[in-house]
Structure formats: structure tokens, C-alpha cells
Simulated scan of single mutants.
Amino acid sequence: MDAELLELQQQFESAQQAKSSVRLSERNVVELVHKLQELHFLDSDILHTVTGKEYITRDHLRHEIEAEIRKSGRVSLIDLSDAVGVDLYHVESQAQAVVVGDPGLAIVNGEIISDSYWDSAAEEIDEKLQECSQIALAELAAQLRVGSELVVSVVEPRLGKIIKGRLEGGQLYTPAYVSRICAMVRGAARGITVPTNLATVWNSLQQLLQDTDGANGVSVEGAFFQSQFNGLVKEGEVLGSLRAGVQWTPAVFAHAQRASVDSFFSQNSYISYDVLQKLAIPQPKQYLQSRYPEGIALDGVFVHPSMVEMLDAAIEDAIEHGNWIDSLSVLPTYVGPQDVSKILSLCPSVQREIKAAKAIVMGESCIFSNSYVKVKFKSLH
């Protein structure tokens, strides 16, 4: 029995050591693997490489993708396909699965990018920003090979944390530079005493920066100056009114306007619209009606009710004494014939005497008492 067992062992050993005369081709191996998959002896998630000489599981492919991401935080799907030797379709499919399972990853323009990569990029951006005082987002987008909108979405949440700067109008500025610009805008705004188009002020500040900093100075857009100015207005550091976004009227000018108008009107009981136009007050009639609601707006002049009362008293006196009067001799020279009729219509004594046939109006501005007219007619006969 032992002899038979020993003989069988020797035969088995000889069979193992003998070289096979039959070898499987690569095609046979592929067919064999497919057959084993059909018979469920092998998992169906096995993928073959682009060369067809190797097989890889989906789990291992995901592991390879994750390993590449850990190396740099940013990897191209095309580069991944070349590195692992698997068709791009399968790489994209597994990359989606990796990104879905990790909120810190995203696929952007055919690349997997991690939050840690953006944090590192933000540190580099901040380092460059502190050196240059200003960086354009378009420049960053070109360096990072991504769109400007993506750069904004990356930069904004990291401002004040990793990036010590301020984003304005597509530009990044350091806090120190922002403070400098703000101080320049504040000084320029407080120096304005008359209505001014702010665009001319910003152009002057840009020229000043170029003269001060030279060719290496930071280029500042007018929109940035405007943004700083709007902030100062909102905080009450500069006072005035802004019209159409660029036309600035400082409070000191508006105060001088009001003081000048008030002084003239109180002293004369009238004011012409030309005076307001010379003071750069738009829509003078509406301005006066708003400021002096009790006043009377005529075509060429704005008068106080006391002016009507004065004329009414003078006309009443002339009629009582059997005389006549030219209204223009009582009214300011700015009052033209077209305005006299309106003023006379507001004089109660004139309207009363005309209805009572005690007075008549001639030549638009002259009022004659009936007794005066009768005397003159009698003297002619």
C-alpha cells in the first residue's frame, strides 16, 4: 500500500514538473474571463485596460483615482485615464462616484479638484496679493486655467480668512490699499464745493496715483473709487446728494443755495427763476413751490402773497381817490405783462370794483377808476 502511494506521488510530481505543450493565447484568456463572468464565477465589475492585457476592478479604479487626488488635489480625468490605462468613459463614471461620496471634491471642466487644493491656491493668491497690493481676477483665472466665475466662488468665501483682501469690481485689493484709496476719495469728496461730475474726480485720482506710484503703481478702476464713495455717503462721512449715480451736489453747496434763495426772497418778496438757474438749481419753479408752498408761481417770477396784498392796497387807494395806477409801477421789473393779469385776478379789491363797475382795466396792467374816466371824458367836451 505504501509502495503504491509513493508511486502515485512520484507520478504527480512528474506531471507538475512537465512542461505543457498547450498554451492559452491572450484571446483565449479574454474569452475565458468573459465566460467566467457569464457563469458568475467572476464579478461583473471587472474592467479591462485599453491594452486589453490587464483587468481592474471598479473598486480598485476608484482607489487609484482617490490616490491621484491625494497627491495634488487636482487631477485631469484624461490624465487619470492615461495613468491607469482604463477607458475615459469608465474613469468618468468612477470619478462621479468618488465626487458624490466626498463633498470636498468637485468636477470642473474635466478635472477633479478638492477643497484642499483651493485652500492652497488661496494661500498663494494671498501671498501674491500682499506683494502686489492688487490682483485682477482675470489674471488669476488664466493662471489657474478656470473661469472667472469659478475664481469668484473660490475667493469670496476665503476673504478675511485665508485671503486678507477685498474684492471690488473684478479686482482683489489689500486692506491697506483699500484704506489708502478710501482716504483719497474722502479727501477729494470733502474738497468739492460745487456740483461736480464724479467721473472727472476719479480720473484725477487715477492720474494722481500714476504720478505718485509710477509705472509700477496699481491700476484702479473708476468703479472702485465710486464704491468707496458710496460707502462714505452711506456712513455719513460726506454729505450731499447724488443724482444719476455720478452728479454730486455737496451739502455745503445746497446749504449756500438755500441761504441765497431765502435771503433774496425774504428781502424782496419775489425771486426770478433766472436767479435759481444761475445758482444751478434745476426746475426752479418746482423748487420754489416745494420750499414756499404759500408763494405764487408766475411765468417769469415767483412772488410772495404780500406782493399781491401790496398791489391790491395800492389799487384800492387809487380807485377810492378817483385816480388810476399802472400795476407794473408797483410790481418788480421781472414781472412781465403776461403775469400781471394773473396777479390782478388775485387782488380782491380789483375784482370787487370791476364787478361793481367802479373800475376798468386797460392795457393789461393799468386800472382806472370810473370817476377818473368820467372826469376825463367831460374835460374833452
Rank of each mutant, 00 (worst) to 15 (best):
L159D: 02
K234C: 04
Y55S: 06
S227T: 15
A223D: 09
G240D: 05
G110H: 04
Y89S: 08
I46G: 10
G147S: 12
A357T: 15
Y173T: 02
L8C: 03
S179W: 02
M184I: 08
L239Y: 11
R258D: 06
G85E: 03
V261N: 00
G322I: 04
L32R: 14
R58Y: 10
L5R: 05
P103F: 04
I56M: 11
I65D: 08
G245S: 12
L105H: 04
T193P: 07
S241N: 07
Q226E: 15
K378D: 11
L137R: 07
T200V: 13
G187T: 07
Q210N: 04
A256M: 05
V151D: 01
S76K: 00
D126A: 01
R70M: 11
L209Y: 05
Q9C: 12
G236D: 07
Y177S: 02
S227R: 12
M1C: 10
G169P: 07
E38R: 13
L328A: 11
G214H: 07
D211F: 05
A142V: 10
A136E: 09
R58H: 13
Q283G: 08
S21F: 09
A280Y: 14
A97V: 10
G222F: 08
R166F: 13
G170S: 05
L331E: 02
Q226V: 02
V146C: 11
L150K: 06
A256F: 03
R243K: 15
G73W: 04
Q37C: 02
N323K: 07
G52C: 00
E7D: 15
E320P: 02
I271Q: 00
G363R: 00
E168V: 06
T193G: 13
Y273N: 01
A254G: 03
L276S: 01
A251V: 02
T174A: 07
S179Y: 04
V99S: 02
L205I: 08
V29H: 08
L167V: 00
Y292V: 05
S306L: 10
R258T: 11
E237Y: 10
D299H: 06
H48A: 09
T212R: 09
L328R: 14
Q94I: 04
V108N: 03
Q17N: 12
I181A: 03
V233A: 07
G165M: 03
S120I: 03
Y334F: 09
N216Q: 14
L242H: 04
D79T: 05
N28T: 13
N109Q: 15
E66Q: 12
K19E: 15
L331Q: 00
Q9M: 15
N323V: 03
G240L: 06
A357L: 15
K128N: 14
S345M: 09
E64T: 03
R62Q: 09
T212V: 07
L298Y: 00
I107S: 01
S148V: 12
S120T: 07
N268P: 03
H90M: 06
V75H: 00
D262T: 04
S329R: 11
V29A: 09
H63Q: 14
A223I: 14
C347V: 00
A95E: 01
A15F: 10
Y287S: 06
I354W: 02
Y334N: 08
F41S: 05
S371T: 10
E221D: 14
I296H: 00
V246A: 11
K71V: 15
E139M: 06
A83H: 13
